[in-house]
Design a protein around this nucleic acid. Sequence first.
DNA 1: TGCCAGGCCGGGT
DNA 2: ACCCGGCATGGC
Length: 216
Amino acid sequence: MGNSKVLIEMYETMSESLGPSNWWPGDSPFEIAVGAILVQNTNWANVEKAIDNLKSRHLLSAQAMHEMPSCDLVELIRPAGYFNIKAKRLVNFLEFLRNEVDYEIEGLKVQGLDELRPKMLEVNGIGPETADAILLYALEKPSFVVDAYTFRMMGRHGLAWENMNYHDLQALFMDALPEDVALYNEYHALIVRVGKEWCKKKCGLCENCPLNSFLN
DNA sequence: TGCCAGGCCGGGT
DNA sequence: ACCCGGCATGGC
């Protein structure tokens, strides 16, 4: 694909400018998966409060979260926003974990990406971005994560246009880049870090953005 | 103070 | 196949 060169160059520019990201924040694959669900359309700082609520009570485990009354789970994750619907989504995912691997999330690693991803998407509350975040950051599967920052950045640089959907943009990256878990991991992390700092919804900071030399 | 943040679902065209 | 309203907190 003709995008390989520019996408690699953008990656190297961001990497040299910002340094390593050490993503995803979280001490375990399960914590990463919980964070991926809680961060849906929400500020990460709020997600951290919710995760801290669980962790400080020693309740950040699949079995503990599945066995507690859902009203308790709702209260613990309240700071993450959308707490009623996110509690249900967490329970749906916990049920999936129990059925698939008896709550041991790392057991999912034995499954191939092509069989695991569709199964995860069947869980109500797990959409493409959440599934890919869990696959990539918790399970180390080579599935590129696309998010709102990715759409914004690629649109701003003329590499994606309005009618592209999640799958289109993911394919654009995965066709252009070598299949490399570490590369996918760091690339998405850098996009989010650059996006948070320089490319918010109202983008007026392009003069200082590490990627400004790529603007037409 | 209103706007925004690392989406997704369900119901309607 | 898209489009839209709903979901909710905390920081600036």
